[in-house]
Design a protein around this nucleic acid. Structure first.
Ligand code: FES
Ligand code: FES
Lengths: 154, 154
DNA sequence: ATAAAAAAAGAGATTCTTATCTTAAACTCG
DNA sequence: CGAGTTTAAGATAAGAATCTCTTTTTTTAT
């Protein structure tokens, strides 16, 4: 549904939203390590996002990537468009030409409501709002430090 | 989520379920035309499905592919396993190592119920049951004859 | 100047998709 | 039965898309 590239991009945007600021720019290297993604690939993606004004960057010493307040008003959907282009979402789950209520494939009415829901969530919430939610609910974005609740039992 | 190959496979299984029988075997060529899929690619997929006993075939004149009553007791899920292998479904939507309720990514709780539901539908229903449903509700499987309801208005 | 970092371009690897060609099986008809 | 036709099975490879890595250039801070 989403390309690998796009997943990396979304995760890094969220990472930057949480960890960066104008005073605290973060280099590709750190981001890549933190998110456990291939570094050069991520670099390219971040460049793309920068061109599309979804993240900000400065070169030179103490340079790096960060999100300014404008960037934070964008939606995840913008990231998806920037990286994967539109389309991947509107397609029929079984590969029919159109995904359409009037000519549904056998799984259409199972898939469609969820597609709508997730699409809404991606389009309507700003990055900022996502971050609030992530902070409130302890959602994970990096591959590291999984099993946060490991020793919760007993 | 599903590979192209897998989509083709699912659609041809359903096509065969609806249109074929032991007395009415259907050749790759017809199936490929009907479903508008690349013929040689489909051929390979059908071979794979035949090896896994999900479809039946005979060679020679009047030969072709069909579903016998055993084949019809399988589930779509079996097709997915045969073509894509397991896994593609259990993955995190944002590419994290595990998709896990305890360490959810920011979209996990939007995606997870959907995944469960569709998975159930794929695992629990037999091909036969799907066909009944398709017939009852006029679902589309081929790319041709879309817009069944084109002139329904007015 | 020097060093740090992103930007840019592009080479290489891998996987996914499609096409071609040969072989083997099954039926048909003389 | 036996030659010829039909169709799937199998092997191989060409093409395309996706993903990963390398190298060079440009910008900026100190
Ligand atoms: S028509 Fe297949 S998912 Fe909507
Ligand atoms: S953890 Fe990401 S979808 Fe479940």
């Amino acid at each position: 549904m989403l390309s690998n590239a796009c997943k990396y991009a979304i995760r890094s945007i969220l990472y930057l939203a949480i960890n960066s600021s104008e005073d605290n720019k973060i280099g590709v290297k750190v981001i890549a390590e933190e998110l456990e993604t291939p570094q050069p690939f991520l670099a390219k993606l971040l460049q793309q996002l920068t061109r599309d004004k979804l993240v900000s960057s400065t070169k030179g010493p103490n340079g790096g990537f960060y999100l300014d307040s404008k960037n934070r008003k964008n939606a995840i959907w913008d990231v998806i468009i920037s990286i994967d282009g539109t389309g991947k979402f509107d397609n029929c789950f079984l590969g029919l030409a159109k995904c359409d209520d009037r000519n549904p494939c056998p799984v259409h009415f199972i898939v469609a409501p969820f597609k709508d829901k997730i699409l809404d969530s991606f389009r309507d919430k700003t990055i900022d709002e996502y971050v609030v939610e992530i902070k409130n609910t302890n959602r994970v974005i990096s591959l590291k430090d999984l099993d946060l609740f490991e020793d919760e039992e007993s």
